[in-house]
Simulated scan of single mutants.
Amino acid sequence: MTAPQRPARRGRGRRPIAQVRAEVLEAAAAVLMREGVGGFTIEKVIVHSGVSSATVYKHWPSRGALALDGYLHAVGDEIALRDTGDIRADLVRGITAFVRMVGVEPAGPVFAQLIGAAQTDSELASQFDQHYFGPRRRQAFALLEAAKERGQIRSDADLGVIVDIIWGACYIRLLLPHLTGTLTVDFARDVVHQALNGVTLVEKSG
């Protein structure tokens, strides 16, 4: 079996670190989406990107951390939450964007694999908290706090419970579809409406 050939270095001299990072992340995303978490290694990313191993290990101390960064680089900010002034519509928009993202191959299965790997990879779990779950949870809290200030939901509503009901229900279906059912856009919309029905002060829109 012939060993894979390392791509030629992309030019001489020092390149901007942002360019180097982008090349590594593009390579990481390609390897991850092609081979899944089980087949993902830092060495494969190094070979695919042509970036030195010293540079890669300097910025990504673990396989899991690089895999997650590659995944987030690939999906971009499609699932970022945005405040338009309508809390129900904003949450529906955000959660359905998530459902659509994980509803296609290979993005959905790979994301579920990353969550599973984080249970035994402390560095990956930390990266998830810092770069994915933490920021998105804060976005959701900010939306709900703003809705409180506008009088759209009750002032005594427990924001953590609302967030956990909406996202927790979707993650359960993502990770355990054979037990809980298919994760669909209609399901996600229903979860948002059910979570908000007990705390809203205005009539349901849409």
Results as ranks from 00 to 15, higher is better:
H193T: 10
D186Q: 15
T182A: 14
G198M: 14
G181W: 04
N197E: 15
D164W: 01
T180A: 08
Y171M: 05
D190V: 11
Y171C: 00
A188C: 10
V161M: 09
P177N: 14
D190R: 12
V163S: 07
V185M: 03
L175S: 13
D164V: 00
D186R: 13
I166M: 06
D164L: 06
F187S: 14
W167G: 00
L175C: 12
Y171S: 03
P177V: 09
T200D: 07
A169C: 11
R189H: 00
V185Y: 02
D190W: 07
P177G: 15
A188V: 07
P177I: 09
I162Y: 06
V202G: 02
R189I: 11
L179G: 14
R189W: 02
L176W: 09
T184V: 05
G198H: 11
F187R: 12
L201D: 12
G198Q: 11
T182W: 09
L174M: 15
K204A: 10
I165Y: 00
I166D: 01
T200P: 08
I162G: 02
Q194E: 10
H178P: 12
A195N: 04
D186M: 14
F187I: 13
C170L: 15
G168W: 00
I172P: 01
E203N: 13
V191S: 08
D164G: 08
R173H: 12
L179Q: 09
G168K: 01
V192Y: 04
L176H: 14
L196C: 09
I165G: 00
L183Q: 12
N197K: 14
L183F: 03
L196R: 09
V185I: 12
I166A: 04
R189Q: 11
A195S: 04
A188S: 15
L196F: 01
T200W: 08
H193I: 08
L176D: 13
I166Y: 07
V161F: 04
V199D: 10
A188T: 07
T180Y: 03
Q194D: 15
V202Y: 00
L176S: 15
I172S: 13
I172D: 11
A195I: 01
I165S: 02
W167K: 02
C170W: 00
W167F: 08
R189M: 04
C170I: 07
G198K: 07
V185H: 05
L179A: 14
I162V: 13
G168L: 02
V192F: 00
K204G: 02
R173P: 06
G198T: 10
A195G: 02
L201W: 09
L176R: 14
A169N: 04
A195Y: 01
D186S: 14
Y171D: 01
